[in-house]
Structures are given as structure tokens and as C-alpha cells.
Amino acid sequence: MGQDIQVNIIVPNQTQYLSLIGGIGEKIAKEINEYEGDRDALAFNINLALTEAMMNAIKHANSDGPDETVEVRIHIEEDELCIRVYDQGQGFDLDAVPVPDLNHPTEGGLGIFFIRSFMDVVRYEIIEGGNNVLEMRKRLV
């Protein structure tokens, strides 16, 4: 794609930074040169995936450390947008997160569903004694 964009951000483990992180993802999505799909939809969806991923890190992965930080790395690699969200908590089992029953909506449980809906590859890796990472990839062509 000829675009070498990499952004690394570290913010406190607090919801007031959701808007900042989601907004950065949205702006980067709008800057991708050769994306031929619906750019506004891509920007919204990247904002949403980042917002949900960071909230997940705040709520589940860093729950016992309000002074901890969340690190986000956004990188355009070849024809993919790669987003990694790092947390310092005990982690969670991504495969155990149930698919929501959309015919019987409940107030929670849509965050990972949105990430899986809008990103092409989603994986979570627990790293012993270090930063766990939620990796999300979106094909751009």
C-alpha cells in the first residue's frame, strides 16, 4: 500500500480515554490510501473495535489495578490494519466468550461480538508475567 503508519499509545486504565483511543483509530482508518470500501463505515468500525477492546482491557484484564495502563499499537502492515491492545491483568479466555443470542437481547455481552464482526482475525494471547495482547487484524483490500 506504500503507507508506513505506526502509532503506539499508552494511556491510564480509565474510561475517559476510550474516546481518545477510538478517535485515533477512526482518524487512521480515514487516512488509508487505497481502501475502496465504505470509508465512513470502516472508520466507525475501527473506532468501535478499539473502544470495545480497550474497555475489555480496563474491565476484565486490569480490574485489580486502577493505576495500571493500557497500551495500544496501531500499524498498517502490507494490506492489513493491525491493532494490538496490551493489558497487564490475569487475562481471559477469548474462545470461552459466548456468541450473544440476538433474538433475546441482554444488556451486556456484545463487545467481543462487535470486534469479531468487524475484524477479520481476532486472537488473545496470555503472556506469563508480561503484557497480554488482544490482536485484531482488518484486511484492507
Partner: peptide, 13 residues
Amino acid sequence: SFIDSSGLGALLS
């Protein structure tokens, strides 16, 4: 212009 899962949850509540 933007809503996430918790915003939808608040409306559903």
C-alpha cells in the same frame, strides 16, 4: 455519531 455496546445496553435497560 458513535455508540458502543454499553450505550446500547443503557438503551435496552
